[in-house]
Amino acid sequence: MIELRPCRRRKAVGFASMAMGPVGLVLPVLPGFLFVALGVFVLRDQYVWAHRGVRVIQARWPALIPAVEAREQKALDWTDRQVTRMRGIVRRR
């Protein structure tokens, strides 16, 4: 059974990564597939379709999962720092 854990921050990071994916597929500078994969991985605890997508990725590339988990944590830490920074800016005014 899949345990869905809703979190606005994870949804924001996941959908932002997935939005950058198609842009990266068009532009040669951004790795589009990696952004889509990261977005699906971040959303795996939010939606059933994303959980199924992660299972496909895990079955095909099992060594990739630890690297993606590290990137996921890095992205979530970055959003924490930005939220803290913005709260500090807003509270000063």
Rank of each mutant, 00 (worst) to 15 (best):
M1S: 03
M1E: 02
I2S: 06
I2R: 08
I2K: 12
I2W: 02
E3V: 15
L4I: 15
L4Q: 11
L4W: 11
P6L: 03
P6M: 06
P6D: 06
R8D: 15
R8Q: 15
R9Q: 11
A12Q: 01
A12T: 11
A12E: 03
V13M: 11
F15K: 02
A16Q: 04
M18T: 14
A19M: 13
M20I: 08
M20S: 02
G21D: 02
G21M: 03
G21H: 03
V23C: 05
V23D: 02
G24F: 05
G24D: 10
L25V: 04
L25H: 06
V26H: 05
V26W: 09
P28W: 07
P28C: 11
V29W: 06
V29L: 07
P31Y: 04
G32I: 14
G32N: 06
G32A: 08
G32F: 01
F33T: 09
L34M: 13
F35C: 11
F35Q: 06
F35L: 14
F35V: 12
A37T: 00
G39T: 02
V40A: 11
V40N: 02
F41N: 00
V42M: 06
V42Y: 08
L43T: 08
L43P: 08
L43A: 09
R44H: 11
R44Q: 11
Q46S: 09
Y47I: 01
V48M: 14
V48H: 10
V48E: 15
W49G: 03
W49A: 01
W49F: 00
A50G: 08
A50V: 13
R52T: 10
V54K: 01
V54I: 08
R55L: 01
V56T: 03
Q58N: 14
A59Y: 00
W61E: 02
L64N: 14
L64R: 07
A67K: 15
A67I: 13
A67N: 14
V68Y: 05
E69N: 09
E69M: 09
A70M: 13
R71K: 15
Q73V: 04
Q73C: 02
Q73G: 09
K74A: 10
K74P: 04
L76F: 00
L76I: 05
W78K: 12
T79H: 01
R81A: 06
Q82Y: 06
Q82D: 00
T84N: 13
M86I: 15
M86V: 15
R87V: 04
R87A: 12
R87T: 03
G88S: 09
G88V: 06
I89M: 05
V90K: 10
R91H: 14
R91W: 07
R91F: 11
R92N: 04
R92T: 12
